[in-house]
Simulated assay, not measured.
Amino acid sequence: MRREIFDKNLIEKFLVFMQSRNFEVLFEAKKNQLVYYSESEALMKLRLPLDLEFDPEKNQTNLLDFKHYVLVLIRSGIAAVGYFENFINTDHKVFRAYMVRKKQGKSQIKYLKTKGKSRAGSRVRLSETLEFFEEINIRLSSYFKDFRVDQIGITCSETLMPYLFGSKEETPFDKKDPRIFKIPKHIQNPTYEELLKTNDFLLSAEIKYNDKGEELWKDFLASVDEKNEKISPEDNW
Results as ranks from 00 to 15, higher is better:
3 R>C: 04
3 R>Q: 14
4 E>M: 09
6 F>K: 08
12 E>I: 02
12 E>Q: 14
15 L>N: 10
15 L>D: 09
18 M>G: 09
19 Q>F: 05
20 S>C: 03
21 R>C: 07
24 E>P: 02
24 E>G: 02
25 V>K: 14
26 L>W: 10
34 L>E: 08
39 E>P: 01
46 L>H: 08
47 R>W: 11
54 F>H: 08
60 Q>V: 01
63 L>G: 01
65 D>M: 03
66 F>L: 05
67 K>W: 02
69 Y>W: 02
70 V>H: 05
73 L>I: 04
75 R>G: 07
76 S>T: 06
78 I>H: 01
82 G>W: 05
84 F>I: 01
85 E>I: 00
87 F>Y: 13
90 T>Q: 13
91 D>C: 12
91 D>R: 12
101 R>M: 11
102 K>G: 00
115 K>L: 03
122 S>N: 05
122 S>L: 03
124 V>E: 14
125 R>T: 04
128 E>D: 15
129 T>D: 01
133 F>M: 02
135 E>S: 14
137 N>H: 04
137 N>F: 06
138 I>G: 00
139 R>H: 15
141 S>A: 12
142 S>Q: 14
143 Y>L: 08
144 F>S: 03
145 K>W: 06
145 K>V: 01
150 D>V: 13
151 Q>Y: 09
155 T>Q: 09
155 T>I: 12
157 S>P: 09
162 P>M: 10
167 S>G: 11
168 K>P: 00
171 T>S: 14
173 F>Q: 09
174 D>K: 15
177 D>E: 13
185 K>E: 07
187 I>H: 09
189 N>T: 13
192 Y>T: 10
196 L>M: 10
198 T>F: 08
200 D>V: 03
205 A>I: 03
205 A>H: 11
205 A>C: 09
208 K>Q: 12
211 D>Q: 13
214 E>P: 04
218 K>C: 04
218 K>N: 13
219 D>C: 02
229 E>N: 12
229 E>Q: 15
230 K>D: 03
231 I>W: 00
231 I>T: 04
232 S>A: 14
237 W>L: 15
